[in-house]
Write a protein that binds this DNA or RNA. Structure first.
Lengths: 120, 120
DNA sequence: TTCTTATTCAACCAGTTAGTTGATCAACTA
DNA sequence: TAGTTGATCAACTAACTGGTTGAATAAGAA
């Protein structure tokens, strides 16, 4: 698990690490929109917004189509699911940790603060 | 919703947009570890790993404590939850979209490809 | 005290990102 | 045809990121 689609995870997390791009995602979540529409709320140039959209597109968080001169942008929810799936892995493990917590607390290793090499 | 903790979202997504840092999270998900432990699997210097950990710490994805010379790193699952919560917002909206999909398909606006300004 | 281990700080370099402006392309409209 | 709109390309700059090495700090161990 991991490593095959590392690049896509990189790209998706990176893409969302920007408030403008997250705002674009939010806007798209209730309907597709053109670059012009998406650029309108921001105080930056349309070229800059176009670049942001390219970043989202490379991360496959959005797709694009053609409508005359327009290039409507659409949300691709599958990639968002991939992120929750990645995070979800560690939520499950964490629950295991809680399940074992009292056992750990009783062990001498924990009391000596050597919880460093207790596995692998 | 949004904008108050924008900075934390920025930092968290950015922090996870790196395979080394994601790998550190994965490692921490089954137990705390020191910088030395965390650095071991990687072909980069310990200083570099230390910087990665600082990035994770600033994003509050991990916390640190003190054990003699060691500074053990611990996973902070709450921040991971915050990310799934953010993404989850748009999953919900998307389900609304699906719920309304047939209605949209019947409307004239959708057939003309003008799904651009159909709200706000 | 001196030595060793664990970690960080500081300065630096190479590559990348986010923004700019100006020109260009693509497709509709008069 | 010429003009307009929507979007991208190209070149550039400023700021940041990820890595390096070498020195410094903190805490045990001899």
């Amino acid at each position: 698990m991991e490593s095959s689609n590392d690049g896509l995870l990189d790209a998706a997390f990176m893409a969302l690490a920007d408030p403008i791009r997250r705002s674009i995602i939010a806007r798209l979540s209730h309907g597709s929109a053109t670059v012009n529409d998406l650029a309108e709320p921001f105080a930056i140039s349309k070229q800059a917004v176009s670049k942001h959209i390219q970043v989202l597109e490379q991360a496959q968080l959005v797709t694009r189509s053609r409508d005359a001169q327009r290039r409507p942008v659409h949300l691709n929810p599958e990639r968002l699911e991939a992120l929750t799936a990645w995070i979800g892995q560690y939520r499950l493990v964490r629950e295991d940790q809680f399940r074992n917590l009292d056992a750990v607390l009783r062990s001498s290793a924990a009391s000596r603060g050597r919880q460093t090499k207790d596995q692998s």
